[in-house]
């Protein structure tokens, strides 16, 4: 019976649970979430790809003309790429709602979806 008072105290308290899709928790500054690459700063050195523990980054092309791909399904959001980049071209935003409602042919495809960062091509 040692808990009775605590129980009754919680009866008038607001529940700790958040009704997630209708209200979201306060974002905490500095959360590691979506990876964004500023392709114009990228020099195509490949350090991020070499360091990525989850093999979630891919380079198309070479050096100054390369394009980057980021696979959110494989990413473990450790932020090593941000640290490895010698030109600060990669940054992580706090945007964590990365799930989509787009249909995917099969569940296995999840890790194969990617976000492309394309360099504007000169005409």
């Amino acid at each position: 019976m040692a808990m009775e008072r605590e129980l009754l105290r919680h009866l008038v308290k607001k529940p700790a649970t958040i009704i997630y899709p209708f209200e979201s928790p306060e974002p905490i500054e500095g959360t590691r979430a979506k990876v964004e690459i500023d392709i114009l700063k990228c020099i195509g050195c490949g350090t991020c790809i070499h360091d990525c523990p989850a093999y979630a980054l891919e380079m198309v092309g070479k050096g100054l003309t390369c394009d980057m791909k980021w696979y959110p399904g494989r990413c473990v959001f450790c932020g090593q790429c941000v640290e490895s980049c010698p030109r600060n071209a990669i940054k992580q935003t706090a945007e964590h709602d990365l799930a989509t409602t787009e249909s995917v042919e099969s569940a296995g495809m999840m890790s194969e979806r990617f976000v492309e960062f394309n360099r504007p091509k000169k005409e």
Partner: peptide
């Protein structure tokens, strides 16, 4: 929440790097 604030992640904090913290 404190750990998310300090390190960036709730679990799997990735707080260390070889030779220091991040």
């Amino acid at each position: 929440d404190l750990m998310e604030m300090i390190t960036g992640n709730r679990v799997l904090h990735a707080a260390n790097t070889i030779g220091g913290v991040r």
